[in-house]
Design a protein around this nucleic acid. Structure first.
Lengths: 120, 120
DNA sequence: TCCATATTTCGACAATTATCGAAATAAAGG
DNA sequence: CCTTTATTTCGATAATTGTCGAAATATGGA
């Protein structure tokens, strides 16, 4: 994944409503949900939701398909996986022990000993 | 990690200059780099960089400390780890097989395929 | 103290984003 | 063909973000 795609995916998730949509669709699983149901569940105007859905889809995080009059959306796990891979590769840079996050708290070695909180 | 923090971290990385800063600092490792060096390396105005650095730091992705006249910045691996954990937990929702392939890039050790208790 | 260096804060501006109603498009069924 | 339902596109507006110069703050040295 190039960083341009990563930025698109990160930005897609970095917004309250869109993150809520994504989490909802992950819960919904492969069956997905229709645009209308999502809009009612999250209480956002259909046109607003539509814009968010297209941003998420363009970022590769959702898939959609039409069934009769309704359009279903579901989380696209490939997209998420790509994003996670980008972040871990970026983060780990040949030091897998640092980020191997999924195993749950691995003690972090080597951090600067003094924090100043120097800005602000 | 609550979703508010996650949104802050995602948003912090979802910007070209800031992602570049972060990647640069990951490469630099625990030694970190001074604000001035980062600014010269990435060719951004010091005041612009300063704003980006504070956004990244507020999001928990950087740490900073002063050494004499200069302020060093380094990637904060805890922050990244928290973000990754948030994303994977969100994404996997009881279906670890979906996102687990991430393990490939991180050399993650034996995760149980089923959690029996403790997960919040 | 005064000067030079390193960085941040402030203030302004342009660009982008989020929101939502109204109108347009798409599909199904009389 | 007309109506109803589901969704998107368009257009306007308010809010947020990214940028950078100028001024302010912090540090160290002569």
């Amino acid at each position: 994944m190039e960083s341009k795609n990563a930025i698109e995916a990160l930005g897609a998730l970095a917004q309250e409503t869109r993150l809520a949509v994504f989490r909802l669709l992950v819960k919904a699983g492969a069956a997905g949900m229709t645009a209308g149901t999502i809009a009612r569940t999250l209480e956002v105007a259909p046109s607003t939701l539509s814009s968010h859905l297209s941003i998420l889809e363009r970022a590769g995080l959702l898939q959609s398909w039409r069934v009769q009059r309704q359009i279903f959306y579901a989380a696209d796990y490939d997209g998420v996986r790509d994003l996670l891979a980008f972040l871990t590769e970026d983060c780990c840079q040949g030091r897998p022990e640092i980020c191997a996050p999924l195993a749950g708290s691995v003690a972090a070695p080597n951090r600067p000993t003094e924090k100043t909180g120097a800005s602000r």
